[in-house]
């Protein structure tokens, strides 16, 4: 197992192994899509909330993250808030979801979906 290289600056977004595996599984059935796109929208009680969708192309202003063979694109307006974030995938019987562990967040609502920076 090779060590992760140290980087002088934060990566835009890092993926946990479970997030990588889930994305691979999702894209396996959708060969026309090259990856997932992370966006941020104004909603929820703390102002901002992530959105996630399939994408066929890289947008002009998207930032691209390639890790372990999967691609995640970050919309321009999400890039600043996502800087340094770890994207995880958490699953149990009752629910399963992508979780963004974001060091920039100053507060979230009780369920964790909505946040402000």
């Amino acid at each position: 197992v090779s060590k992760r290289k140290l980087q002088p600056t934060r990566a835009a977004l890092t993926l946990t192994p479970s997030a990588v595996n889930k994305i691979k599984q999702l894209l396996k059935d959708k060969p026309e899509h090259v990856g997932l796109k992370v966006g941020v929208r104004t909603r929820g009680c703390n102002g901002l909330s992530y959105s996630l969708e399939y994408t066929k192309t890289k947008g002009d202003s998207d930032e691209e993250v390639i890790q372990d063979g999967v691609r995640v694109f970050i919309e321009k307006k999400a890039q600043l808030t996502l800087l340094g974030t770890e994207m995880d995938y958490v699953e149990d019987k009752l629910s399963s979801e992508f979780v963004f562990n974001n060091p920039n967040i100053k507060g979230t609502c009780g369920c964790g979906e909505s946040f402000h920076v």
Partner: peptide, 22 residues
């Protein structure tokens, strides 16, 4: 895509909710 979970919908006892529904 981002989440799968049980939710309560159309609750006549609820006046308003946050947008994630919980």
């Amino acid at each position: 895509l981002i989440r799968s979970s049980f939710q309560v919908l159309n609750n006549p006892q609820a006046q308003q909710g946050c947008s994630c529904g919980s």
